[in-house]
Design a protein around this nucleic acid. Structure first.
Length: 589
RNA sequence: GCGCCCGUAGCUCAGUGGAUAGAGCGUUGGCCUCCGGAGCCAAAGGCCGCAGGUUCGAAUCCUGCCGGGCGCGCCA
């Protein structure tokens, strides 16, 4: 459907076209000066040059074409060098709002049902998830929800790190510790034990030990490399042991992702790309794209016009093992072959930008990704501590994601008590509310930051409940729900009532109409923070409206119904936006 | 050395060529015996890192410099 600004831009575009100017000059946006007007059009100034006329004359001509539309425009005037200031009739605003209200998507354009694959997990096997995994998970999940809302077929893939050197490090460490295990006996004919010999806690201890051993001892590193290659080559005992790492690790990941409300459609890993590597490399060789270099097999991806040196993508290291570039490329083979996606979005640390540049170039050169598959690295910045350096706990270690989540939920619980909220509900519901509030605080604190920039991870801010926070937004929604419940108990019907625009509710009504514009920007640029900003401003607009006029005690029945309707619309929109961001709204709090 | 990102209020951050640059936190002052005060209203607080350029118009685009972060062949 057409949004309010699109409708207005269309009207102005035709007016400009009638003057022999480009239709795009008619672009209408929300006014920068709300005290002067609701919307503005700046095209007259840009068009002045083309016609060699005074911009104010052009603005005047445009206005003359439009001012007969008295049902739309309450006022059109020229300001400054040639701004056209636009004020709509309340009736037109009410109609626009009504149109939006009747659309289940609240005005968002439905996109074609193409497939978009999002890659936003990347947790590693055998390592506990830490705060660094938070960004990928919640930004990626928000982007997935945005794609779904827009009508795409969106698929989230956790894409675990389960195939690299760390696997070999753990295997060779275990081989030293438990040489008697059947996994290490080449003569063992199976079957291997169904039960994992290791718990997640074991793995958390073993991995750093193995990794350190390799750092300090060349022969240990060599052993780990060999084990990695043998694992990748399919040695049965190693594969069986490795399967245990995976199932144990996935259980840990699922606990974290479930707590966060982050969803994945696929629980694939780098290893799933393995079967595609051999044939892919053969094809690359046949295309003369893969060449030997210093004992490794690489795809040169540098171009003449590069401003910087782009190293080749390494397919096979000189020791015969594959690298993550290899699996990333082979994963594209898999995805294109089976899903033919219109887009693949990688929500991965910005520091990987060069890596993705290499992979994307190799995919283009070889035709692995055709012109119909867009490849996007939606990188995000580093999470720093309040000192501006990469975040560490007071003890100097990394903070586990699990601990951060627990901390947020406990803080929410304490705050509920302190504020004497949710007093009348039972313990189970209180627990559920605290969980929703804590998670909302966490997610919103992260999502509201611009994706690409580094940002300061301030624990106090992450569990704050006032100001521009997730809980504030939930609170506004809960307050509206409470109001609507009261209205219902008084038998006030709201569904069919028309909206009557008055001074106290005009800006709220206009802002509700602007939702699709904000959504499109967020979708196009893969920037959830735009939606955070919209949700916050909407909640504030509501709160202002709520403070300015009493609703239930409004004596004019028509006005009361209209305001209840506006409340309901605000609630629906706010809940929808929060839902897209992955934030639940409790019934009470 | 080369390349990428960032530099906006005391702090944390929005701001995709338009008018008088915004928000949250913090600070200061207000808010009706009525719908949930995790709220609302208001004030103070800015050479938008610096210097040029393009443009009718620049926080935004271009160039140079300064400061910070990151990356640059066999880790992921």
């Amino acid at each position: 459907m057409t949004t309010l600004t699109q409708t207005l831009s269309g009207l102005f575009g035709s007016a400009f076209a009638a003057l022999g100017l480009g239709e795009s000059l008619g672009a209408v946006k929300t006014s920068d000066r709300p005290e002067l007007a609701q919307f503005q059009c700046n095209g007259a100034m840009a068009g002045a040059k083309a016609l060699g006329k005074n911009p104010r004359e052009i603005a005047q001509a445009v206005i003359e074409k439009l001012q007969s539309q008295k049902d739309v425009f309450q006022k059109l005037d020229i300001a400054g060098p040639g701004f056209i200031n636009i004020t709509l009739t309340d009736d037109f605003i009410a109609r626009a709002l009504h149109t939006m209200a009747t659309d289940p998507l609240r005005g968002v354009t439905q996109h074609p049902k193409e497939t978009i694959i999002l890659d936003y997990g990347g947790p590693n096997i055998a390592k506990p998830m830490h705060v660094g995994h938070l960004r990928a998970a919640i930004i990626g999940d928000a982007l997935r929800r945005m794609c779904l809302y827009a009508g795409y077929r969106a698929i989230g893939d956790v894409h675990m790190g389960d195939w690299g050197l760390p696997m070999g490090q753990i295997i060779s460490e275990l081989e030293i510790r438990h040489p008697d295990w059947p996994y290490f006996d080449p003569a063992f004919a199976g079957p291997y034990p169904a039960q994992s010999p290791l718990s997640m806690d074991d793995l958390e201890e073993i991995y750093p030990a193995a990794s350190n051993a390799c750092k300090n001892d060349q022969s240990r590193l060599e052993a780990a490399r060999l084990a990695t290659r043998d694992l990748q080559d399919g040695r049965p005992g190693y594969r069986a042991l490795w399967q245990h790492f995976i199932s144990v690790s996935i259980a840990g990941m699922k606990a974290n992702f479930t707590a966060l409300g982050v969803h994945f459609d696929w629980w694939k890993g780098e290893a799933d790309a393995h079967p595609f590597i051999g044939p892919m490399v053969e094809k690359l060789r046949a295309q003369n794209l893969a060449v030997e270099s210093d004992g490794a097999l690489v795809v040169p991806v540098a171009r003449e016009d590069d401003k910087k040196e782009i190293p080749p993508l390494i397919l096979y290291k000189s020791d015969g093992a594959v690298m993550y570039g290899t699996t990333d490329l082979a994963t594209i083979v898999d995805r294109v072959e089976h899903e033919n996606p219109a887009k693949i979005i990688y929500v991965v640390d910005q520091r990987q930008a060069l890596h993705f540049e290499q992979v994307f170039r190799a995919a283009r050169l070889s035709g692995i990704a055709g012109p119909k598959t867009e490849l996007i690295h939606a990188g995000f910045g580093t999470m720093n501590g309040t000192d501006g350096k990469p975040f560490k706990t007071r003890a100097g270690g990394v903070m586990k994601l699990e601990d951060l989540i627990t901390m947020a939920v406990e803080k929410a619980q304490a705050r509920l008590e302190e504020a004497k909220l949710a007093q009348e509900v039972d313990t189970a519901e209180k627990e559920s509310i605290a969980r929703k509030v804590g998670i909302a605080a966490l997610k919103f604190a992260d999502l509201q930051n611009n994706r690409v920039a580094d940002y300061i991870f301030d624990i106090d801010r992450f569990v704050a409940f006032e100001g521009k926070t997730g809980p504030y937004l939930q609170y506004q929604a809960v307050r509206i729900q409470s109001l609507l419940r009261k209205a219902e108990s008084q038998n006030l019907r709201i569904s069919e009532s028309q909206i009557m625009i008055q001074d106290s509710d005009r800006s709220l009504a206009l802002f509700l109409c602007a939702f699709p514009d904000h959504f499109e920007i967020a979708l196009r640029n893969h920037t959830p923070h735009v939606l955070c900003d919209y949700a916050f401003t909407l909640a504030q607009a509501f709160s202002t409206f709520y403070g300015a006029c009493h609703i239930l005690s409004e004596p004019d029945a028509v006005l009361r119904q209209s305001r209840l309707h506006l409340c309901a619309l605000t609630l629906q929109t706010l809940t929808a936006v929060l839902g897209i961001l992955g934030i639940d709204v409790p019934e009470r709090m």
